[in-house]
Amino acid sequence: MTTARLLVVSQPPHIPGPFSTRRIMLDVLIALTPAFLAALYYFGVGAFLVTATAVVCCLATEYLIQKFLLRKEPTINDLSAVVTGVLLAMNLPSNIPLGMVAAGSIFAIGIAKMCYGGLGHNPFNPALMGRVFLLMSFPVAMTSWPKPLINRFSVDAVTGPTPLAIIKEGLHAGQPLGELMPKIPGYLDLFLGNRGGCLGEVSILAILLGLAYLLYRQVITWHIPVIAALSAFLLSGLFWIMTPGSTPDPFFHLLTGGLIFGIVFMATDYTTSPMTVKGMCFYAAAIGILTILIRSFGSYPEGMSFAILIMNAFVPLINKLCKPYRFGEGKI
């Protein structure tokens, strides 16, 4: 009574797992939603236009390259290009000309991702590559920041420097820290996002909501965000203790610039971060340290993007050096 039916033969496992690339990308987008909503609240229509342009240009670049250059089935359905687009937008000021956004998107996907072989093969974070490309090409547009909650319904914003720039330039000009601190928003405003800066980075509260969701969905583990924040906190704390009165305190460093956004959404990018927990810890600690070093001694007020990109370059080496503990290879 052999039944005539076609059965599938494959290696185990024979049940589907809980994760898929598309679902992970969707989770990252969901996690980015609070930051995006905060950007809309503080920067208005400009935030929407920048994000929409980045997403459309990233998707189009990936689609066209796969379809016509590589001549294979486009994989834009995996949503990874959408994530890159949103992440790039979150790293831009809301008043940046949209042509520049398009250029940054094309660079991020075309050069930083597809040139290396596409999803999973890029050594550097594509969105950050797009941001740094724009920072070097259009330094003025990339460092004029609209003030929050003003002119939200027009793209002609009133601009002003970010808190990090106020402190850095003021200290450079020899002003005492005590005179500079009143010029920046209070820590509660910094936490809520009422300050100048890139779209996604301003509201720490919104970013932490996204982090909670990513942890809940097991998209990322706590290691990279927590250790990077801790190392940045400790090093800036050390500087603060060593040179009181001329260095901002460690909480200022955590609350300003793109540090929290960077360690939650950029440093945790799968492809460009280490594969083992041990490796992630070294990588994250180095990012925290490099960020504070660049902020304290570099010529740019913000060092987050560079710190992550520099550490991206070390990931293959970290993977080689940081192996997991092999069961049974130690003591009996």
Binding site: F19, T21, I24, T75, D78, S80, G118, L119, G120, H121, T221, Y270, T271, S273, P274, M275, T276, V277, M280, K323, P324, Y325, R326, F327, G328, E329
Partner: peptide
């Protein structure tokens, strides 16, 4: 089948500490 996105989950779940 899609590209490995290097998420490291396989390393995380391997009970023998392999990659």
């Amino acid at each position: 089948l899609t590209n490995c996105i290097r998420c490291g989950k396989c390393v995380e779940v391997c009970p023998l500490g392999l990659e």
